[in-house]
Design a protein around this nucleic acid. Structure first.
Lengths: 242, 242
DNA sequence: ACCTGAACACCGTTCAAGT
DNA sequence: ACCTGAACACCGTTCAAGT
């Protein structure tokens, strides 16, 4: 039977440090009904936070409505009062993980170049911290937090002197660069953990892939450095002035 | 996870050849309404081709082992003799769609810039023709056809005069750019078909996203032009010579 | 070598109902 | 307003077996 409503349930699964629920800051609307108790009552915030936890722990296939409900100490169907369906959970989890907490004082005084690099590295780091977000991001619609990042990026470029007519290309070039770099990175993490494939394709690239081998393409693990170099190059091209 | 297992199970021993192209020859248009099973014997090729067909027609969730077997006119479990598991089908389908048929005579005589642009646009077009390949590509290991594309890209860059020590950054920058641009593109296709989200976030970007609106970021549909511009910019930065 | 159905342990979601 | 179990129509895959 599935009667598991005994008292020992429904405690917080783990005290692991973990990013707070999607809306920690003083944002417009929020539930002032409930105290911040993470205990009994189901709430969108709790559902999303737990979904992220589950995704972090077990990957994209590990998120199951039943498993999620279980972790929350509720019945499966209770989730459906708060959420449309499983895709809704994916969308919410994805966007929550992409929220941008800007650095304390990023005002106009700073060098815009520093600012942009910081934004993009933060974004990339966020995705790498939750690798499941990458495929999700490429198969689901853009949420508000992602759009906010785009907006901020555009604003900064604009402030840096990029003309309106060039803004489009500038934003997308940077955006695409970050997405691409992150995908590449997670791809290779995957490849590394998949020894069979690595053996088969990466271990002896000299025979079929001499250039790849010569450039040490698959073995260079200075991802951050490479990321920065390409980014600098791009920025130089986009806003040559100053 | 690659499909070939080390045991004696696979159809083809796994030496040098991975597997031929399952994509339909002739014009890329194919009928989605395929009559079932005119050819009797199951084969890896047939399985992969049908999987691609199914993915094209019904998306990533539409591929089901049962459905696949059904289309092939076989029992579900018959598939498992040719293929490890469902992930194996995904890997095979993905790689098959990314095969590069170089243009007839792409020899050294051509301008390398033309060559590279052609390669990358072909790659991008291939992914857009099979949108399910994008999230798959960002969550699965790189297959041989993808590595071949990388190799060719590196070789061409090298021939164009890029020094070995710069090859790494050059390859990844271009690669990442294409991946990112393609993801962005498919994201917006999704957003367009998702009217609720579009209504909510894209229809009134002026209020919360003034810069995005000003740059007409979300409404510009000259994807090809934008793609080309960013690419030219990148190429100029990567190989300033000439 | 190749293919098969039955069976198992799961899924997401509808529904009618409880508080 | 919030939550629930039972039920339905699916899944992927193991197994023992057939040719």
């Amino acid at each position: 039977m599935t009667a598991k409503r005994s008292g020992a349930r429904s405690k917080r699964p783990r005290p692991t440090e973990f990013q707070p629920a999607p809306e920690p800051r003083g944002e417009p609307h929020l539930s002032l009904e409930r105290p911040l108790s993470l205990e009994r009552p189901l709430s969108l915030e709790r559902i999303v936070a737990t979904a992220v936890e589950l995704l972090d722990a077990r990957g994209i296939d590990g998120l199951t409505m039943r498993r999620l409900a279980d972790r929350l100490g509720s019945g499966v169907m209770s989730l459906y009062w708060h959420v449309d369906d499983k895709d809704g959970v994916f969308d919410l989890a994805l966007d929550s993980v992409l929220e941008y907490r800007g650095s304390p004082q990023m005002n106009g005084a700073e060098d815009w170049r520093v600012e942009i690099v910081h934004m993009l590295e933060d974004w990339r780091a966020g995705m790498l911290r939750h690798p499941w977000s990458v495929p999700l991001l490429s198969s689901r619609a853009l949420g508000p937090n992602i759009l906010s990042r785009l907006e901020l990026l555009g604003r900064t470029l604009s402030r840096a002197g990029v003309a309106d007519k060039d803004l489009n290309v500038a934003i997308w070039s940077l955006w695409n660069y970050v997405m691409g770099a992150t995908i590449t990175r997670t791809s290779f993490d995957l490849a590394d953990s998949d020894k069979a494939a690595t053996q088969q394709h990466h271990a002896h690239p000299g025979e079929r892939y001499p250039t790849i081998q010569r450039s040490r393409l698959l073995f260079d693990d200075d991802w951050v450095g490479t990321f920065r170099k390409g980014l600098d190059l791009l920025l130089a091209g986009l806003a040559p002035g100053r």
